[in-house]
Amino acid sequence: MSIKNHITASCAISKGAVYKNGEPVFANPDADLTGFLLSVYQYLTLNYVRFYKMDNLSKLGWLASEILLKDSFHAEKYRPEETGILLTNSNSSLDTDLKYVQTIRDIPSPSVFVYTLPNIMIGEICIRNHFKGETALFVFERFDALFMEQYVNNLMNNGILQACICGWVELLENKYKAVLFLVEKKANEQTNIFTAQNMIKLFQIENI
């Protein structure tokens, strides 16, 4: 495929640290998961009450999308249907599935049950940003950058999307990792060409 798309922003959250475009922007390594997610929310100085209702997977994916898009995404450039979201992970919504199973023994909780689908975090990001384009959630054993490159390029180069948020959002018990990429057609000063290789580089950021 000869048409090149660009990673115009990236965000990684892993091991108590947050990175934007490859640079560390926030760290709270000693907090437990709940405390860490809350501290990232507070770092963003937002007032978004839906955040408190979300399960941990949605919180993680939603926070990563907030950091990804902040100062980097210009919503006025696109119609709502032109921005889409393609996310992948390994354990689907298992973190919340385990919590829901506990509620069945007592009183099944509809507010927990609704988060037992991994694509709900995509819905949360769409609600926040009024994104109405193509969305999908794929389950992979590990992050498959080559699949992501091929799949997103196809959507971008055939006029299905003009902008795409894609990546990996995985959370189970106390282990978590989110890496999101904003893919657009035009380069900017932060640009990396949208390739599997560049995604892998940003994906491994916490090891640097």
Partner: peptide, 24 residues
């Protein structure tokens, strides 16, 4: 193999994903 899990549209999304993969 690929796994698609997007709630109640998963079945249609599987077909749509198949189309995207062939056309790419």
């Amino acid at each position: 193999p690929l796994v698609v899990s997007s709630a109640c549209i998963s079945g249609l999304l599987g077909i749509i994903t198949g189309k995207r993969l062939i056309q790419s």
